[in-house]
Simulated assay, not measured.
Amino acid sequence: MEIKEIKPGMKHEVTDRVTEDKTAGVMGSGSLPVYATPAMSCLMEKAAAELAETLLPEGYTSVGGAINILHKAPTPLRGRVRAEAVVESVEGPKITYRIAAYDEVGLIGEGTHERFAVNEEKFMNKAAARLQS
């Protein structure tokens, strides 16, 4: 599948607030009451997914294939976090993003993320078939 609407340089942002349920201690990725790496990763991926979702043809969605991030700084409870995804390249069904997350002070994480455009029905049939084996 060729993706014509998604172009390098396109950008999308999403925001979040650090609540108890998104802390490392609660999510199990550590013991401290700071924004968990899985929560930051999820927010970054959400930015990328939302960008693709609005531009793919009907019947298509995108699925995550790879994510590589560094979590560089802690954000305490009640902090605000903004994640952005910028399209770096589009090759066939693969969309590669540069992703980053910021709190009120500055950069807290960055990395890359790959998503793949898929036909929803075919993808779900493939998923269901995995349990029928």
Rank of each mutant, 00 (worst) to 15 (best):
E13Q: 04
N68S: 11
K7P: 00
C42G: 15
V81D: 07
K122D: 12
E104W: 15
I69G: 05
K122I: 10
A47M: 02
G28S: 04
T54Q: 13
G28V: 00
A100K: 12
V26A: 06
K72Q: 11
P93E: 09
E114H: 14
T61P: 03
V34F: 09
P76Y: 05
V26L: 05
D103L: 13
A128T: 15
G109T: 14
L107A: 14
P8I: 01
E121G: 15
G106T: 13
I99Q: 13
P57M: 08
R82F: 11
V63M: 02
F123H: 12
L32K: 11
S29H: 03
E114I: 14
E45K: 07
A117N: 13
L51H: 09
Y35G: 04
G109H: 13
G30L: 00
E114P: 12
E110P: 13
G25P: 06
F116D: 11
E114Y: 11
K22G: 01
S29P: 02
G9A: 06
E20G: 08
M44E: 05
A24K: 06
T54D: 13
E114R: 13
T54M: 12
I67C: 07
I108K: 13
F123V: 11
G65H: 01
N68L: 08
T19G: 04
A48F: 02
T23G: 03
F123C: 13
K122Q: 14
L56N: 02
G25A: 04
V90A: 02
T37K: 10
V105C: 15
Y35C: 07
A52L: 10
G111Q: 12
A83Y: 06
V18E: 04
